[in-house]
Design a protein around this nucleic acid. Structure first.
Lengths: 207, 207
DNA sequence: GTCTATAGGACGATAGAC
DNA sequence: GTCTATCGTCCTATAGAC
């Protein structure tokens, strides 16, 4: 007859640190399998937790997804701000103001450079962007808002570059997303930064 | 005490017709939930079958996916050939020769027009294209081959249009995929055909 | 903050009757 | 060509101990 035993050999991390660990493991697993293919068991295993232990931190599977997206946005905002040499840039997809003196072409280049260094994260967003087209997906609203905001920011910055700033904004976004997918499919024969520069040469032509 | 009963009130369709029904139901469900989110039960329900009945036709869940992709390719090849006014065009993504007199810009326009009329199918491919980036995905090889072949065909047709036909091919593909995602996200504020024409104006510029 | 234990389903697949 | 019945596995989530 087996007797219930409380096992004390698990690490007991501070909540903040555990949270970061969970976010990273989840991002990797969603990139691999999508949100529908994600299992709480896998996340828990990778963190050295049981499933209820994991749920204690994130509440539910949907809560986990939201937490991951917010975590990524915060990280990206910090990195992009540093790269553009401004202090308090809020990521364009998270809402917020734009600092003066940032021009669209440099901003796109910075985004692409940043993404070229973290293929796993790019894949995470590529998978979720497609999955979340379905209105019932838990990240549907998040991605709808994100796209709308990015388009608005791009269009505002494109005002002096094109007679149709909104169309240009759409084209820039489409090209970035499309080139990223190709790059993810075969990174070895495909330099993302170079591909973007070639494309930018065409899209940013004077009119 | 319940007694096993063989229920005879289900429709007994010819295999070919049943197959077509299964392909269509599956395409719709994958577009909604992705392959990882697809359940054989849902497909069976939508076809008025039990799960074993469904498995009799497709063998396994992976087999079902492959069948759907092959089914779509065949349909698309027929439609595209009709639109371009040639008899035996094999779809560029399925392997095969290109008829003389088909130029790249007209071909892209035909593809976009075709896609604009079947958003559910476009969504199916958008979701699978992202999901299948993972090497363990059952459609990984299919989509890798598809992308490679499409790029090769585009590049061949771009030979006289650009000093770097391969780069142009990549840009065309990226732009098509990217614009389609935006269109799927908000079809009402987004005319796919118009957006493509605007973009083509930039990408097909003389150099 | 993490555990054990368990509820309560859904999953893909197989065997064998009709 | 479709069924019933069933196997074994996986799933998210909760209750309550420590």
């Amino acid at each position: 007859m087996t007797v219930p035993v409380y096992r004390r050999d698990r690490a007991r991390l501070p909540a903040a640190e555990r949270r970061r660990q969970i976010m990273e493991a989840t991002a990797q697993l969603i990139a691999e399998r999508g949100f529908w293919g994600l299992s709480m068991q896998d996340v828990a295993d990778r963190c050295g937790l049981t499933v209820p232990g994991l749920l204690h931190h994130v509440g539910s599977k949907d809560g986990l997804l939201v937490a991951v997206l917010e975590h990524r946005d915060a990280e990206d905002a910090r990195s992009l701000a540093a790269q553009l040499g401004v202090d308090d840039l809020t990521a364009p997809w998270a809402g917020g103001e734009l600092p003066p003196g940032v021009d669209l072409r440099r901003m796109c280049a910075a985004l692409v450079r940043r993404n070229a260094g973290q293929p796993e994260i790019v894949r995470l967003f590529a998978v979720l962007e497609a999955e979340s087209l379905a209105p019932s997906h838990p990240a549907h609203d998040y991605f709808a808002a994100r796209q709308e905001h990015t388009l608005a920011v791009f269009a505002a910055l494109a005002k002096d570059l094109s007679p149709e700033p909104h169309a240009l904004a759409r084209q820039l976004m489409a090209m970035m997303d499309g080139l990223q997918i190709q790059w993810l499919r075969s990174p070895q024969t495909n330099d993302l930064v170079q591909a973007w520069e070639d494309a930018a040469e065409l899209l940013f032509v004077d009119r």
